[in-house]
Computed example of a mutant assay.
Amino acid sequence: MIQIPIIKEYQDHYQQQVVELILQIQQQEFQIPISKEDQPDLFTIESFYQTGNGNFWIALYHDQVVGTISLLDIGNNEVALRKMFVHKGYRGQTYKTASLLLEKALKWAQEKSLKAIYLGTTPQFLAAHRFYEKNGFVEINDTMLPQSFPVLKVDKKFYTYTVNNNPSNVRIYR
């Protein structure tokens, strides 16, 4: 029987694995010209993401980081979903890694009584677009983003999710 990954809050001793996973997906898998120097937040995860209404989670499979997701507090009871990455071998129905990560983030948002989650993504992440849409995210124009939303240079497609503060309503479609 296949075990599913364990989702837990980020701790500093996983930093190297997190950086390696994200860079491998960005650079090798999707040929996005972004470096670790372009992402200083990867070296200050605790002070950058794990403050206010924000947090950062990792998916672990036998103590190996196979996925990440974060919510960045952007004020006004809103957050930006960032750093949603899943190792190629742990995507899909077998491990449900993306679903488990998103479910954790959505439950956090409800528990914190947040209003909305926003995200920006690249045009190349087609499977991610379908995943977000299937899970209640609605595509929006960049003019609909809050002024405090941190648009990255690779972000060309944007989504929002209205948080319903009823935890029993969180349903992740796997």
Score class of each variant (00 low, 15 high):
129 H>I: 07
126 L>N: 09
128 A>Y: 00
118 Y>D: 03
126 L>Y: 10
125 F>V: 00
143 T>K: 13
132 Y>D: 02
110 Q>T: 14
127 A>T: 12
126 L>M: 10
137 F>Q: 09
116 A>D: 04
110 Q>D: 03
121 T>N: 10
116 A>H: 07
116 A>T: 09
140 I>T: 03
135 N>F: 06
128 A>P: 00
140 I>S: 10
133 E>F: 00
130 R>S: 14
114 L>N: 05
129 H>L: 08
115 K>H: 14
129 H>F: 07
122 T>G: 13
111 E>R: 06
133 E>P: 01
137 F>N: 08
135 N>D: 08
132 Y>Q: 05
145 L>G: 05
141 N>W: 00
136 G>S: 09
136 G>F: 03
131 F>K: 04
110 Q>L: 03
140 I>Y: 05
143 T>I: 10
140 I>M: 10
117 I>N: 06
125 F>G: 02
139 E>F: 00
133 E>V: 11
125 F>C: 02
133 E>A: 13
118 Y>W: 07
117 I>S: 05
114 L>W: 02
129 H>T: 07
127 A>E: 14
112 K>N: 14
142 D>Q: 15
132 Y>N: 04
132 Y>G: 03
138 V>E: 11
123 P>I: 13
125 F>Q: 06
141 N>A: 12
135 N>V: 11
124 Q>P: 01
145 L>T: 08
109 A>H: 03
109 A>T: 07
145 L>P: 04
112 K>H: 12
115 K>V: 00
120 G>E: 13
130 R>K: 15
126 L>G: 01
119 L>T: 15
115 K>G: 02
133 E>W: 01
